[in-house]
Design a protein around this nucleic acid. Structure first.
Length: 192
DNA sequence: TAGCTGATTGACT
DNA sequence: GTCAATCAGCTAA
C-alpha cells in the first residue's frame, strides 16, 4: 500500500520524519528490491542555502516547485546518485533526501549491483549506496512515487522506534540546521 | 569554451 | 586522518 499523494503535500521536515519506517520499493523487470527507510534529511526552499532549490534553481525548479510525491534524482561528484522525494504543494518547494535503508527484499540483487559477494550493513547505509543497490538513476528523475516502478509504501507494522534529530551530513552551507532524522539504534544509519 | 564545484564513497597512510 | 574518481550544470569570459 503506497503512501497517498497527500502525505507529501506537507512541509519537508514533517515528511522527513514521517518517512522513517516506510518502505522504498524498486521494481526492475522481475527484480524487486525494497528497504525500510531509516535515515532522511529535509531540504527546504530558496531560504535553505544547502537546498538545490537555492543552489541549482534552473535544474531543479520544475520539480521543486511542482506538487510533492515525485522523485528528484541527481548525480553527485560525477559518480553517485542521490534519491529525494519532492514535498509540499505546488509553489512550495522542498524535498527529502533518503540517506539510508534497511534491506527487506532482494538483498541478493542489491549485493550484485553493489559488486559485493553477500549482503551486509554496507549495502544501503548511505545515499549513494542505496541508489546503486536499488538501481536508481537519472532515468527515475521526476518519477511518481505513489505508483510505478519506484514507490514508497506505508510502514508494514506499528511504529516502535525513537527518532534522532541532528545537523545534516556532508552539506557545506546552513550546517547548523537540525534537519536530519534517523531511527535511533538502527545499524543501517549512515553515521551514528 | 574553459574552469569550477559538490547532499559521496572507497582505498590508502 | 587524507585523497582521487568523474560529470552535469553553473559561472565567467
Amino acid at each position: 500500500m503506497s503512501l497517498p499523494r497527500a502525505f507529501y503535500l506537507r512541509p519537508a521536515r514533517v515528511v522527513a520524519r514521517g518517512l522513517l519506517g516506510c518502505v522504498l520499493l524498486s521494481r526492475r523487470g522481475r527484480v524487486l528490491t525494497a528497504g525500510r527507510i531509516v535515515e532522511t534529511e529535509a531540504y527546504l526552499g530558496p531560504d535553505d542555502a544547502a537546498s538545490h532549490a537555492a543552489i541549482r534553481p534552473l535544474a531543479a525548479r520544475d520539480l521543486f516547485y511542482g506538487p510533492g510525491g515525485r522523485a528528484y534524482v541527481f548525480r553527485i561528484y560525477g559518480l553517485h546518485h542521490c534519491l529525494n522525494a519532492i514535498t509540499g504543494r505546488a509553489g512550495h518547494p522542498g524535498c527529502v533526501l533518503i540517506r539510508a535503508l534497511e534491506p527487506i527484499a532482494g538483498a541478493r540483487a542489491m549485493a550484485r549491483r553493489r559488486g559485493q559477494a553477500a549482503a551486509s550493513v554496507g549495502l544501503t547505509n548511505g545515499p549513494g549506496k542505496l541508489a546503486e543497490a536499488l538501481d536508481v538513476t537519472l532515468r527515475d528523475n521526476g518519477a511518481d512515487l505513489t505508483r510505478g516502478r519506484l514507490v514508497i509504501d506505508r510502514p508494514p507494522g506499528p511504529r516502535g522506534f525513537a527518532v534522532g534529530v541532528g545537523p545534516r551530513v556532508g552539506v557545506t552551507r546552513a550546517v547548523d540546521r537540525l534537519l536530519r532524522f534517523w531511527i535511533r539504534g538502527n545499524p543501517y544509519v549512515s553515521r551514528p
